[in-house]
Simulated assay, not measured.
Amino acid sequence: MAYSTGKSAVITGAGSGIGRALAQQLNREGCALFLGDVDTGGLAETVASLEHKDAPVVQQQVDVSDKAAVDRWAATIAEQQLAVDIVVNNAGVAYSARVDECNYDDVQWLMGVNFWGVVHGTMAFLPLLKAAPQGHLVNISSIFGMIGVPTQSAYNAAKFAVRGYTEALRMEMAGSNVHICCVHPGGVGTNIARRSRGGPADVSADEKAALFDQHVRTSAESAAAQIIAAVAKRKPRLILGPDAKFINLLSRLFPVSYPRFMPGLGKVGRDEPA
């Protein structure tokens, strides 16, 4: 029997990518699901793809950048059950631009989803996790939460913030029944690049996706399996993917000079998409 069998999980960003893969695997293991995403079409496709039709699934359109919406979602779930076993703050977006060319509204949009979405989800669902025999909170940062990358200042800022926020929370929850895990994926096969903002105006969504795919080292399904295994083993941190492990090592050995060991990193600039 899998660790998640008979448990319940909340997943944001469940309409595609890692969120969908997590839903599919947890559903196969007999875990009840509460799935949220701003994209109702993608969310419906995720639900339709689930194999274990007898396992409970509830879907909810929710914009994680909207605190009131996330609070209402958590309150609705609390009306149905006293506790939740697993919460994965997975929803994320991307924006590429040099700092001196950033659009403030786009930066605010990214921070609203990638950082505040994690804060909103954490604060709204922490009471339900505390009420579980063993609660698990998983916040998705990025390997870009460990290194800076040209044209990714907003994304870096959000993911560094998620890392710091989650690590502080982990220390606060030490000795409690709530396990905290921060996940740092490298290149994972998702739709984040296709749906991103910014970058050269003459590059289409398909071209963005093709450029991103060149850096993919881990499938969404493999990422989900590793995250679920990290939950079962109560890991405090998960460096996800061979590229992320390599970059993490470089950043630890060479905290200032790591760009010298990463060909192309310093060349990402005005006319070259990240």
Rank of each mutant, 00 (worst) to 15 (best):
I140L: 12
R170N: 01
G42W: 03
D106Y: 08
A209D: 14
V231L: 01
Y95M: 02
R260M: 03
A174E: 14
D106T: 10
D202S: 07
A225P: 01
V256F: 02
D206Y: 10
V138D: 11
L33I: 13
L249D: 10
K235Y: 01
G266D: 11
T76C: 00
G198N: 01
A201V: 14
V138A: 05
L250A: 03
A205F: 09
V231D: 03
S16C: 08
L43P: 03
E79H: 12
V10T: 02
P236Y: 05
G189S: 14
D71H: 08
A55W: 04
K53D: 03
L137R: 08
Q152W: 01
W73T: 03
A124P: 10
Q80R: 14
R163G: 09
G175Q: 07
F212Y: 15
L249A: 14
A223Q: 02
A210R: 12
K233V: 08
E29T: 04
S257Y: 02
F115P: 00
S65D: 12
I192A: 13
T218N: 11
C31L: 06
V203S: 02
H52A: 13
G187Q: 00
G36F: 01
G6N: 13
L250T: 00
S8T: 15
N177S: 15
N191F: 03
Q60M: 09
S219W: 11
C102K: 03
G112I: 11
L110A: 05
G15Y: 07
A131P: 09
E45C: 02
E167M: 07
R98Q: 13
D100H: 05
I18N: 05
R194E: 06
V256T: 08
Q214A: 11
E207W: 01
G42V: 07
R237S: 10
E167S: 01
Y95C: 05
S204I: 04
S257W: 07
I11R: 01
Q214G: 00
G264P: 07
L82R: 13
G264K: 06
N89S: 13
Y155F: 15
A48H: 04
G269E: 10
Q81H: 02
G199D: 06
S257F: 06
G186N: 08
D63S: 14
P150L: 00
S8K: 08
D100M: 04
A220Q: 00
F125C: 13
D243N: 04
G148L: 08
W116D: 00
V118H: 07
N177C: 10
I180W: 06
G187V: 12
M173G: 09
G198K: 02
P150G: 02
N139H: 05
V203H: 05
V107A: 09
D85N: 15
G189P: 00
Q108E: 15
A9C: 15
A274G: 06
P150W: 02
Q134L: 15
